[in-house]
C-alpha cells in the first residue's frame, strides 16, 4: 500500500492544524469499526460548526445518533421518515426564516444513498427546485446497509447485495448530475478517504446561499466485504482508478479537486480491477462488466476533459 507522508498535506491542500480541533461526535457510537461514514460525518460536522441544525432520515446515521434519550452528536438533529429529508430540511429553514435566524443557523440534511437516490429523490428534487437555503449531503455506501445490504439505485454494476445475489445488472445512478441539472448553487463530490478535501467542501458550502449538494463515497467494510483497516485504502482506489472523480461545480463552473486532478491523464489511472478485486461484493463480476467499467471511466473522463476545455 501507499505510505506517502500524509498524502493530502503533501498536496498542500490544507494543513492538519488548520482543521478545527473540536469534535462534534462523542466517542462510543454504534457504528461498525472502520466505518467511513463515521469519518465523513466527523469532518463534515467540524466544518459546519455549532450553529447547525441537522435532519436525518432512516439510515445508519440514525443509528450513529443513538437510541432514545441519549445522542452522540453535539448538534441538534431532527429525525425524519425515510422519504422526507429534503422536505424536513425545508420546514426547518422556513421556520428559521420566519424567526429571522436563517442567516445565522445552517440547516444540513444528511442521508444515505437509498434515502437520496431512491425514496428521497422527490423531496430532494423539490427542495432543490425551490432553491431551499440548505446543504444536502449524501453519504453513499452504495446499498441499503442499515437494513442488511440490499441494492439501491446507487449500487454499482456487478455488485453483490442481498437482493442482487447474482450481481447488479444496472450501473449506479449519477446523482450529482441530477442535482446539477436543478441549477443549484453548489454541487460537489467527495470521498471518505480524503477528509481534508471533504472538510474544505463543507466549509465552502456553508458560506454559499441556496441549495448545496455534496455526494460522498463512503466505503463500508461489512457491505463491501473487506477488512475494516482497509477503509481508507479502498476509498483511495475509487479515486485512483478514476471511478469516483472528485470535483465541484460552483454556480455552473466545474473544477476538478486536488486528489483527482492528475487522473485527467489516463496513464496515471490505476486499472479498475484493482478496486473491484479488493472487495468481496465484486468477487463474481464478469469480464464483460469489468470492460463496461473501463468504458464508463473512459467516457466519464472524456466528458470531464471536454467540460474543462469548453468553459
Amino acid at each position: 500500500m501507499n505510505r506517502n507522508f500524509s498524502r493530502e498535506v503533501e498536496n498542500n491542500m490544507v494543513n492538519v492544524l488548520e482543521i478545527v480541533e473540536d469534535e462534534y461526535i462523542h466517542p462510543g457510537t454504534r457504528m461498525c469499526a472502520g466505518c467511513a461514514m463515521s469519518l465523513i460525518y466527523r469532518f463534515a460536522l467540524k466544518a459546519l460548526g455549532p450553529k447547525t441544525i441537522l435532519t436525518v432520515p432512516a439510515s445508519c446515521l440514525t443509528v450513529l445518533h443513538g437510541m432514545q434519550g441519549f445522542c452522540t452528536t453535539k448538534l441538534s438533529v431532527l429525525h425524519t421518515p425515510f422519504a422526507t429529508t429534503g422536505a424536513s430540511a425545508s420546514g426547518i429553514v422556513a421556520s428559521l426564516e420566519e424567526k429571522g435566524l436563517a442567516d445565522e443557523i445552517c440547516v444540513v440534511a444528511f442521508a444515505g444513498d437509498g434515502g437520496t437516490t431512491d425514496i428521497g429523490i422527490q423531496a430532494l428534487s423539490g427542495a432543490a427546485e425551490r432553491g431551499t437555503n440548505f446543504i444536502y449531503a449524501c453519504y453513499d455506501n452504495e446499498a441499503y446497509m442499515n437494513t442488511g445490504v440490499q441494492r439501491s439505485g446507487s449500487t454499482p454494476l456487478g455488485a453483490f447485495t442481498a437482493t442482487t445475489p447474482g450481481g447488479k445488472t444496472r450501473p449506479k445512478k449519477n446523482m450529482p448530475k441530477i442535482l446539477e441539472a436543478h441549477g443549484i448553487s453548489y454541487v460537489a463530490t467527495a470521498n471518505g478517504s480524503y477528509p481534508l478535501d471533504l472538510y474544505e467542501k463543507f466549509k465552502k458550502a456553508r458560506d454559499i446561499k441556496g441549495t448545496r449538494y455534496i455526494h460522498i463515497l463512503s466505503a463500508c467494510p461489512p457491505g463491501w466485504g473487506y477488512d475494516p483497516k482497509d477503509t481508507i485504502r479502498i476509498g483511495r482506489l475509487a479515486n485512483d482508478t478514476g471511478f469516483w472523480p472528485l470535483y465541484e461545480i460552483s454556480n455552473g463552473k466545474f473544477a476538478l479537486s486536488q486528489p483527482s486532478k492528475k487522473f485527467l491523464d489516463p496513464a496515471k489511472r490505476k486499472d479498475i480491477e484493482q478496486y473491484l478485486s479488493a472487495q468481496k461484493r465484486f468477487s463474481n463480476i464478469s469480464k464483460q462488466d469489468i470492460e463496461t467499467y473501463r468504458n464508463y471511466i473512459r467516457d466519464q473522463w472524456n466528458e470531464i476533459k471536454r467540460r474543462l476545455e469548453n468553459q
Binding site: 435532519t55 431532527l78 422536505a87 424536513s88 425545508s90 420546514g91 426547518i92 428559521l96 420566519e98 424567526k99
Partner: peptide, 15 residues
C-alpha cells in the same frame, strides 16, 4: 407527503 413532513419540521423548529 413533503407538505406534511415540512409541517412537522417547521413545528419542531418552534413555528
Amino acid at each position: 407527503h413533503s407538505a406534511a413532513a415540512a409541517c412537522c419540521a417547521a413545528s419542531a423548529s418552534g413555528s
